[in-house]
Write a protein that binds this DNA or RNA. Sequence first.
DNA 1: ACCTGAACACCGTTCAAGT
DNA 2: ACCTGAACACCGTTCAAGT
Lengths: 238, 238
Amino acid sequence: MATDLPEPPWRRTTSRPVKRQLSTELIVSTALDVMAKDGLDAVSMRRVAQQLDTGAASLYAHVRNKSELHELMYDQIMSTIEVPEIDPARWQEQLKELARTLTKVMLDNPGVARIAMHTLIPTSPQMLMGMDRILGLLAAGGLPAKVASYVADAVALYTTAIAYEASLWSDAEGGVEEAQRRMGQIDDYLSALPPDQLVHLRAMAPVMAADDAAERFEFALDLLIGGLDRYAQKPATD
Amino acid sequence: MATDLPEPPWRRTTSRPVKRQLSTELIVSTALDVMAKDGLDAVSMRRVAQQLDTGAASLYAHVRNKSELHELMYDQIMSTIEVPEIDPARWQEQLKELARTLTKVMLDNPGVARIAMHTLIPTSPQMLMGMDRILGLLAAGGLPAKVASYVADAVALYTTAIAYEASLWSDAEGGVEEAQRRMGQIDDYLSALPPDQLVHLRAMAPVMAADDAAERFEFALDLLIGGLDRYAQKPATD
DNA sequence: ACCTGAACACCGTTCAAGT
DNA sequence: ACCTGAACACCGTTCAAGT
């Protein structure tokens, strides 16, 4: 039979995969590439499709809409986080470490914080597991259920908000210059004003200009977590 | 002279202002109307212009771009806030009251929180005066400059984030249903899982479903502000 | 100086038609 | 089932032309 003969070498029957099969995973990873290169705003259906040599409409077979795509990106990034085993004696420090890790991941992936902020209630298994661990830590600290749920919420929200704020600086290209322009505007305004106006702001200006983001974050973390002992129903380190 | 004669009544020389003169103020207030009716996403240059019986290009004579328009809306809303005179003896309670007022204003004007979150550093006189009052309160509490700047930042950020989150529920029309859909999804997932998995989340589900937003906010406010005495360099109530 | 219509370079999503 | 091009109904912003 003719088909037993080897294909002549000039006929590439195994059509080289110049275009990989579309799939949700491929779309999500391509979207993450676009975000890493040009920021979240550049992650449009059209742009992602273009990167995959197809039209935007083709993506809708694998992804419900743009906000689902964004959420899948969020899940993907967050699922890389390793949550450590719970050590009840160190629950407060562990909770802080988790908050630091979360922030770092979001800062390393500018744009994710913005998705997180828009995602009302995360439903992916990965996020639920993370939430379970946090609640486990708070239970280990002897916190009653209601307090635990409030603390978990406050830490998650503050952490996300910090990362969101920072991502504004880095995400849009003109972020840093814009921030400097605004600080300059405030300085100019203060200089033009009689010196008995806005005295506290005036006194604070040098302190705020010398902002240490990491220290600021640690301070807030300490406010949110450092004082939780008083809510504990049993000693934290028994 | 002919011009001394009264205009004949059928000639309306005082052309009735069917179209008011364009101005920054008019544009901003129209934009606020649109936001109140259809949410921040509906506040586009084209939509605002349409409301004013003109084209989008006409707005650019009074407003630099869309993000400046958004920021002007933010300033307008925030300038309605009255900051009380400082009572040093009640500085913690006053700071909490300010945070509550800020949140209320943002919740009453869904969309403003989203602008606030995007506005890196507010530069309007109104916002600077507000910031000055907050710093004054913290100084009255005897907090050192650095601590004061960190606290002011943390309270402002948490407050904005809380309002932002809440605005997601109300802003987009499908917010509430979407939240319920997600809670249902989590319930389903927990039911389908062996009962020894995600035990903490499972235990917490009823507590979180009975969320009291106001109580949650007060709890966080207490974490952020209630423990500040230990940072004071002089007694707070002397 | 202020306003305008038209144009440019984008969006998300749908749909009928193809394979 | 999956993919596609074209279309629909939008965007922000610029620019030459008008008054």
